[in-house]
Design a protein around this nucleic acid. Structure first.
Length: 271
DNA sequence: ATGGTGGGGCGCCCA
């Protein structure tokens, strides 16, 4: 039994509900994790979500900024909103697939939207960068604390860090650019190792292949310039390593009309 | 070195 999990920074779920529907019709994910929904909970576009075939969901949002959602074809249990980074931003949510998911029952999904971090990569000069590093430190403590007992879990989201040299169009050019500075890339790798997570996308698309999931809106010809970064990730606990069957980044979706600046990233687990 | 383009929701913050 295949289980497809997609992560996608949608940059307003209300504005792009039709793009979500088009993607779901194409790709048929079993679980769709969204970030930057920019939508208070009482305004979440559930009619559209139901029309796509999702009957189960967990979301936490706020007005104007942030917001994360898990949309699922299977019932969800143990829904929990995270508290990372020392404020009440709606940036993480988790849930577990119920018994209706068959062989995938008990699979736990953690969906994160890590702060972008502003422009200046110095925590003493830029509170947004400090918040990003604090958020990452909290995630690292959480990852380490749960490591021994955590099983059958998937960590997804817009982590706003491109960790490896071939996760960006130019490693040298981006060493001082927020998203690829050493304190971030080393911090993300430390968090991954603290939780013994496997980078499932890189497992299927190993370095040195260049792999991106985000291209700036500010690039007039984003595809030809191809100055991308891999900011969106799917990680799995080590017990799922044999189950990771495929990974796909739908770069073409970045080229749809009025797109998000992020492409959807899908990992298929085979049970 | 700079400014470039989007979204939310209405002057400006955030990506």
């Amino acid at each position: 039994m295949p289980l497809k999990i997609t992560t996608w920074n949608i940059n307003s779920v209300r504005l792009r509900i039709d793009l979500v529907a088009r993607f779901v019709a194409d790709q048929a994910p079993d679980v769709l994790c969204l970030q930057e929904t920019k939508c208070p909970d009482d305004q979440f576009p559930l009619a559209g979500i139901k029309a796509m075939g999702f009957r189960h969901w967990a979301f936490t949002g706020q007005k104007g900024y942030n917001g994360v959602a898990i949309l699922s074809r299977f019932p969800l249990l143990d829904i929990a909103r995270g508290a990372f980074g020392g404020n009440d931003h709606a940036r993480s949510i988790s849930a577990m697939l119920a018994e209706e998911a068959g062989a995938a029952a008990g699979l736990t999904i953690h969906n994160f939207y890590v702060p972008a971090g502003g422009d200046v990569p110095d925590r003493t000069l830029n509170a947004k960068f400090a918040h990003k590093l604090d958020f990452l430190a909290d995630m690292t403590s959480w990852a380490a604390l749960g490591r021994a007992r955590r099983r059958k879990s998937v960590l997804v989201g817009d982590l706003n860090i491109a960790p490896y040299e071939t996760d960006v169009w130019s490693h040298k050019a981006l060493l001082d650019v927020v998203s690829h500075t050493p304190v971030e890339t080393e911090g993300l790798e430390a968090m991954r190792l603290a939780g013994d997570w496997t980078d499932a996308v890189r497992k299927m698309m190993p370095e040195p292949e260049r792999v991106y999931s985000w291209w700036s809106y500010r690039s007039p010809d984003w595809s030809a310039a191809d100055k991308g970064r891999r900011l969106d990730h799917v990680w799995t606990t080590a017990d799922l390593d044999p189950n990771v069957a495929a990974a796909k980044i739908r770069r073409d979706v970045r080229g749809w009309e009025r797109p998000s600046d992020h492409a959807p990233v899908t990992v298929t687990l085979e049970f």
